[in-house]
Amino acid sequence: MHGTQANVQPRPEFGKLGMWWFLASEIMTFGGFLAVYILYRAASGGGWTETAEHVSIALGSINTFVLLTSSLTIVKSTEAVNQGEYDRAKNYLGWTILLGVVFLAIKGVEYTSEIRHGFTPITNIFWNFYFALTGLHALHILVGIIINLVLYIGAVKGTLWREDLGHRIEVAGLYWHFVDIVWIFLFPLLYLSY
């Protein structure tokens, strides 16, 4: 094409920019959920404490540890891509996926136990929130796992590196870190502050 494209930036920057725009809208969405929770909680005058004590702080803490670690592994994967160490990048990505699955498994254990003890999504307004908020978060984790899995498969087959698409791990990482940050706030909101 004739005529230089002075403003055109390389395509990796497109992906990051696009992802940040998406994350901005997600901040507002999860912010909406959190606002509802915070406002109702503030208006409840401490009435939720008794029922809220039935969440498992132990399991929640482990899950927080799991997600924080998975954030480490995916950013290490990005670092490896930048250093041209594709095998290491692939492995770190694999760990991220694994940790995500562990998170969901623990969440499943929590849900099962809570429901068995009679605390369902419709028990009362606290449990409405607990299941809705953690459920939506878990859905986001699932989507993140799928995205990472697609990239992982590309890394295993080698197509990710051959077509110079390794920067996609960084973009996927941005999404993953965001979901981690949501949990960083959900954990104290739902587990610790009672």
Binding site: L17, L23, S25, I27, M28, A35, A43
Partner: peptide, 24 residues
């Protein structure tokens, strides 16, 4: 990108605070 990241957070805070008089 800094602006894209920070503006929604500020907006969220403003929105939540604005709703305190009415909901709480």
């Amino acid at each position: 990108i800094l602006a894209i990241a920070i503006v929604p957070v500020i907006l969220f805070v403003i929105m939540t605070i604005s709703l305190l008089p009415d909901i709480v």
